[in-house]
Design a protein around this nucleic acid. Structure first.
Length: 900
DNA sequence: TGCGATAGTGT
DNA sequence: CCACACTATCGCAA
C-alpha cells in the first residue's frame, strides 16, 4: 500500500538519527508563530518537527529511529571554552515550551528521545552512528548542525535542511567532496580554519572555504598543514601562523564524541509501531488535522499489518464454508452475538454492498455477495432480518443502506461500536474501527484505506487472503463491543445506546432513505435568477472602482478597500483585515462608497446561487434529496447533516426563503408538516435552574421575551418596547453560550457598561439562572464532565487548565453542553416516539428531516389530522420538564409554506 | 492535489 | 471577547 520512496537493500536495517533541537529550532523559525491552537499554545516548532519526521519515516522507511536532544546549553565544550556558542541569543520561550510537546509526540510514536547532561545531541548521534554502521546498519543522520558532516561515509548519509525543514539535502561522501572540496572526515579540518560563527568559533582572517580546502588537500590534513605552516606564503598564511592556537582549539571542539555512554544501543531503536491512541490524543491537543492523518499513514506497524493477514495477530479461524453451508453455520451461532462487517458504500439511496463478513467465537466467514449461492443468500437474508438473532456492527446505519441496495434488511442489532464510542468519547474527531481496536484492544487491523463519509469497508482482498481483513474486522467488532459495553456502563450510558442512539439510527436510516422531494425545475430557475443578480452586482462593483477584481477573494478585496480606496481598517484577522458582511456594512455606513453596496449584494446572491447549485447536484434520480444525518459528530449530542446539509437552508431573508419553496411534498402524499419546539433551550434552562421566575414565565403563556423584559425593566408586559424585547432576547440566548458583557455589547451594539447593567438587572430578577450557571461549571470542574437530562456526558478536562483561554473556553462549553445536549436528547426521544406511534397506528406518513428543534414530516393522504396529533402529543410528551414543551405545527405544499 | 483561512448559512 | 455544526472559495504549499 505504501511504497518506499527510496529503495532499500532488502534485509539491511536502516537507522534514522535526528538532532531534535536543531530540527525543531529550524521549524520554529521557518513557520509563523501565529500557528497555534485555539487556546493559544504556539505549535510551529512541534508541528514542523513532526511534519518533517513524518516525511522522513514515510520517504526513507527506516527500521530504526532515535531523536537526540541537548539537555542544556552547558556541555563539556563550554567547560573547555566558555565562549563556545556564546553569541547565540537566549532561546525564545515559545520554543522552549514546545520541546516537551515534541517529546510527547515521540513518545506516542514510540521513538526514543535520547539526551545526556553535558553532552550535545550531535555527540549522541555520532556515537550511535558509529555503533550502527559497525553493526552493519545503514545510517541516516538528520541534523542542521554542520559538524555532522564529519560523520558521512559509505554507510552514513547526512540529511541537511536547506530551507526551513521541508527540504533536505543528501550529503553523501561524494556530495560533501563536491561541495567543500574535501572528504567528509576532513571537513572539521576545514571548518577549524574557516571558523563557525554560529558556535562563536573565530576562523583565520582571510581564509574562506576555498583556501582552507586547498590547504587541507595539499597537505592531506590539518595536522600536516600546521606542521608546514612556515612554508606557506601570503597574507592568509601569515594570519594562520598567528591563529594556530585558535585553529587547534576549533578542531578540538568541532570533533564529535563517538564514545558517549548511552542507555540504548542501535538494536534498541527498532521502530515498533505507533501508540495510535496516544497519537490521537496529542493530535487532538495540538489540533493537528491533516498532519494526524499523515502521521497515522506512516505508522510502520499499520503498514506491516496491511500487507500481512490481519488474523495472524490473534486467533481467528476464517472458515471456508461449503456451498449452501451458511445456514448451518449461522444456526450453530445460536443466541450469541455475531460481529458483522459490510463492504460497500453506505450512502442513502445510492448505497451498495459487495461483501459481508461474520464472526463469532473465534470463527469467521467472508461472503462475496456477487458470487453467493442462492441457498446461502436466502440463509443470510433470513438471518440478517431476524430480530431475534443478535448482531454487533460498527456503523450499523451505513451498513443498513448498503444492504438495502441488495434487498437485504438488517434487524436485531444489539450493539453499535461506533455509537458506543461516540457516547463514551463525544469530543473525539472520528471513530475509525481500526483506531478504536488499536486503542481498546491493543490490536492492529491495518490502516483504513478510506475515511470518506458513509464509506464502509472498501478493502479489496489481497490474493491468498480472501476476506481475511473483513473477517478480522467482524471479529474485532465483537471484541470491541465487549470493551465499550464496560465503559458505557461505567459512565451510566448503556441506556443511551440501547434506548436512544441505536433505535434512533433506524429512524434516521429510514429518513435518509426516504429523502425529501425537490422541485428541480424551480431550483434551476432560481439558480439562473441568482446568477443574474451575481453578474449584475459584479458589474456594478467593477464600475465603482474602475476595474475588475475577484470579489470572492478576501485578499484581493483587502487590496482594493484598504489599499486603493484607503478605507479605515476593520477588525484584524490572522492574515489582515476582515471583509465580512458586518465590517463591510460598517464601512458603507461610514464611507457610503457604492462598491461596498454592490459587493454585499454580490456576496448575498453568490451565496444563494452556490446553495442552490449544491442542492441541484444532490437531487437523486428519484427526484429527492437524501441527506445523511451524522450521529457521532457533535460533541453535545446533536445530529448534523451532510451531503447536503439540510440543517442550514436559508430562512432569514426573503431571497433565502425562496430556496425553501423548492422542498416539496412528494407525489402521492398530501402535504408537508413541520413541527417545532418553541424556545426549547430556554425551557430547559428554566427546568434545570429551577428559577421560579423563568418557570412562571413559561407557565403564564405570555410571550417569553416580553415577560422577561417586563421583569428586567420593571414595566407592564404590554409596555415592553421592541427594543427592550430584543435586548432581553439576546441576553437570554447568550446565557446558554456563556455570554460575556463584552459579547452582549457587541451583539446589541451598546457599550460594555450598558450590557453589564442589563446582565445585572437580568440576574437580579432571575437569580436562579445565575446560581445554576455557576453551579454547572463548579460541578463540572469537580467531576470532570457535564451531563444532560438523559445523562449524556461531555468531558471537559480543560476546566482545570492553567491556560486562561483554554479554561474559559471549557467553561463556556460547560454552560452550553447540558442545555444544547438536553434539547438534543429531547428531540431524539420525540423522534423515537413519533416513529413508534406512526408504526403503531399503521400510518404511512413519514419523518423526513430533523433540524435540531424541528421535525419535517410528509403526510400521507387522509392522515393530516392524525399526523398532527401524533407530532403534538409525542413531541410535547417526549420528556417531562417542569415547564410545558410547547410545539407549534404548520402545513403546506413546500417547506416554506409549512414553516411558521 | 490538499489544506488552512475566510466567509456565510442554520439552530 | 457566545455554543454547535457544514460547505464553498481562494491561495498557498507539497
Amino acid at each position: 500500500m505504501t511504497t518506499p520512496a527510496t529503495s532499500r537493500t532488502p534485509g539491511r536495517p536502516r537507522l534514522l538519527l535526528v538532532d531534535g533541537h536543531s530540527m525543531a529550532y529550524r521549524a520554529f523559525f521557518a513557520l509563523p508563530d501565529t500557528m497555534a491552537t485555539t487556546s493559544g499554545q504556539v505549535t510551529n516548532a512541534v508541528y514542523g518537527f513532526t511534519s518533517m519526521l513524518t516525511k522522513l519515516i514515510g520517504d526513507e522507511q527506516p527500521t530504526h529511529v532515535a531523536v537526540a536532544f541537548d539537555v542544556s546549553r552547558r556541555s563539556f565544550r563550554t567547560e573547555r571554552y566558555p565562549e563556545y556558542k556564546g553569541t547565540r541569543s537566549e532561546t525564545p520561550a515559545p520554543f522552549k515550551g514546545q520541546v516537551p510537546l515534541i517529546k510527547e509526540v515521540l513518545e506516542a510514536l514510540r521513538v526514543p528521545a535520547l539526551e545526556r547532561e553535558g553532552i550535545e545531541a550531535d555527540d549522541i548521534i555520532a556515537t550511535l552512528a558509529g555503533q550502527a554502521s559497525a553493526a552493519g546498519m545503514e545510517v541516516l543522520v538528520c541534523s542542521g548542525d554542520r559538524d555532522s558532516i564529519q560523520l558521512v561515509d559509505g554507510d552514513v548519509t547526512l540529511l541537511y535542511p536547506v530551507r526551513g525543514v521541508s527540504e533536505l539535502a543528501r550529503y553523501t561522501p561524494q556530495a560533501v567532496a563536491d561541495k567543500y572540496g574535501v572528504p567528509p572526515h576532513q571537513y572539521p579540518d576545514l571548518a577549524a580554519l574557516v571558523g563557525e560563527t554560529s558556535d562563536n568559533l573565530p576562523g583565520v582572517a582571510g581564509v574562506g572555504p576555498k583556501t582552507a580546502a586547498k590547504w587541507v588537500a595539499q597537505f592531506g590534513g590539518l595536522d600536516a598543514l600546521l606542521e608546514h605552516v612556515g612554508e606557506l606564503k601570503g597574507k592568509a598564511a601569515q594570519n594562520l601562523r598567528e591563529a594556530v592556537d585558535q585553529v587547534r582549539l576549533n578542531r578540538e571542539l568541532n570533533a564529535l564524541l563517538r564514545d558517549v555512554e548511552l542507555p540504548l544501543g542501535p538494536d534498541d531503536l527498532a521502530l515498533r509501531g505507533f501508540d495510535r491512541e496516544a497519537v490521537h490524543r496529542i493530535s487532538d491537543a495540538l489540533q493537528f488535522g491533516a498532519l494526524r492523518d499523515r502521521l497515522l499513514a506512516v505508522d510502520p506497524e499499520a503498514a506491516h499489518d496491511a500487507s500481512a493477514p490481519a488474523e495472524a495477530a490473534f486467533e481467528l479461524d476464517v472458515v471456508d464454508l461449503p456451498t449452501g453451508g451458511l445456514g448451518d453455520w449461522l444456526a450453530a451461532r445460536g443466541e450469541r452475538a455475531v460481529g458483522v462487517d459490510v463492504s460497500g458504500r453506505g450512502t442513502p439511496a445510492a448505497g451498495d454492498a459487495w461483501g459481508v463478513a461474520l464472526a463469532e467465537g473465534g470463527q469467521a466467514v467472508a461472503l462475496d455477495l456477487a458470487e453467493i449461492a442462492p441457498d446461502d443468500e436466502r440463509a443470510l437474508a433470513a438471518w440478517l432480518t431476524d430480530a431475534a438473532r443478535p448482531k454487533v456492527l460498527h456503523g450499523a446505519k451505513a451498513a443498513w443502506h448498503g444492504l438495502a441496495s441488495r434487498g437485504l434488511t438488517l434487524d436485531g442489532v444489539v450493539f453499535d461500536t461506533e455509537l458506543a464510542a461516540y457516547l463514551c468519547y463525544p469530543d473525539q474527531r472520528g471513530y475509525d474501527l481500526g483506531d478504536l481496536v488499536a486503542r481498546h484492544l491493543g490490536r492492529e487491523l491495518g490502516a483504513d484505506d478510506d475515511g470518506a463519509q458513509g464509506a464502509l469497508d472498501l478493502a479489496l482482498d489481497a490474493a491468498g487472503s480472501r476476506g481475511a481483513r473483513e473477517a478480522a474486522r467482524a471479529a474485532a467488532v465483537v471484541d470491541l463491543s465487549d470493551a465499550l459495553a464496560g465503559q458505557l456502563a461505567d459512565r451510566g450510558a448503556a441506556h443511551l445506546l440501547t434506548d436512544v442512539e441505536l433505535p434512533l439510527s433506524w429512524v434516521l436510516a429510514r429518513m435518509e432513505a426516504t429523502g425529501i422531494a425537490a422541485d428541480t425545475a424551480y431550483l434551476t430557475e432560481l439558480e439562473s435568477g441568482f446568477a443574474a443578480q451575481v453578474a449584475h452586482a459584479a458589474g456594478e462593483a467593477y464600475d465603482a472602482i474602475g476595474h475588475e477584481v475577484n470579489l470572492g477573494s478576501p485578499k484581493q478585496l483587502q487590496e482594493v478597500l484598504f489599499g486603493e480606496l484607503d478605507m479605515p481598517k476593520t477588525k484584524r484577522t490572522k492574515t489582515g483585515y476582515t471583509t465580512d458582511a458586518a465590517a463591510l456594512a460598517e464601512l458603507f455606513a461610514r464611507t457610503g462608497h457604492p462598491f461596498l453596496e454592490h459587493l454585499l449584494a454580490h456576496r448575498d446572491a453568490s451565496k444563494l446561487r452556490v446553495t442552490v447549485e449544491g442542492l441541484l447536484k444532490s437531487v437523486q434520480p428519484d427526484g429527492r434529496i437524501h441527506t445523511t444525518f451524522q450521529q457521532t459528530i457533535a460533541a453535545t449530542g446533536r445530529l448534523s447533516s451532510t451531503e447536503p446539509n439540510l440543517q442550514n437552508i436559508p430562512i432569514r431573508t426573503e431571497a433565502g426563503r425562496q430556496i425553501r419553496r423548492a422542498f416539496r411534498v412528494g407525489e402521492g402524499y398530501e402535504t408537508l408538516l413541520t413541527a417545532d419546539y418553541s424556545q426549547i433551550e430556554m425551557r430547559i434552562m428554566a427546568h434545570l435552574s429551577g428559577d421560579a421566575g423563568l418557570i412562571e414565565a413559561f407557565r403564564s403563556g405570555e410571550d417569553l421575551h416580553r415577560y422577561v423584559g417586563s421583569r428586567v425593566f420593571g414595566v407592564e408586559p404590554a409596555d415592553v418596547t421592541p427594543e427592550m424585547r430584543s435586548k432581553v432576547k439576546a441576553m437570554s440566548y447568550g446565557l446558554a453560550y456563556g455570554l460575556s458583557a463584552f459579547g452582549l455589547s457587541q451583539q446589541l451594539g451598546v457599550t460594555t457598561g450598558e450590557a453589564q447593567g442589563l446582565m445585572d438587572d437580568y440576574f437580579a430578577r432571575f437569580g436562579g439562572v445565575r446560581e445554576y450557571l455557576d453551579g454547572v461549571v463548579e460541578e463540572a470542574r469537580a467531576t470532570g464532565f457535564t451531563a444532560t437530562v438523559l445523562g449524556r456526558r461531555r468531558y471537559l478536562p480543560d476546566l482545570t487548565s492553567d491556560n486562561r483561554q483554554r479554561r474559559q473556553m471549557a467553561e463556556r462549553m460547560a454552560l452550553n453542553a447540558p442545555i444544547q445536549g438536553s434539547a438534543a436528547d429531547i428531540i431524539k426521544l420525540a423522534m423515537l416516539k413519533v416513529q413508534t406511534e406512526f408504526d403503531a397506528r399503521a400510518l404511512r406518513s413519514r419523518l423526513l428531516l430533523q433540524v435540531h428543534d424541528e421535525l419535517v414530516v410528509e403526510v400521507a393522504p387522509g392522515e393530516l389530522e392524525a399526523a398532527q396529533e401524533v407530532l403534538r402529543a409525542q413531541m410535547g410528551a417526549a420528556y417531562p420538564l417542569d415547564v410545558p414543551l410547547d410545539v407549534s405545527v404548520g402545513t403546506g405544499d413546500t417547506w416554506h409554506a409549512a414553516g411558521h
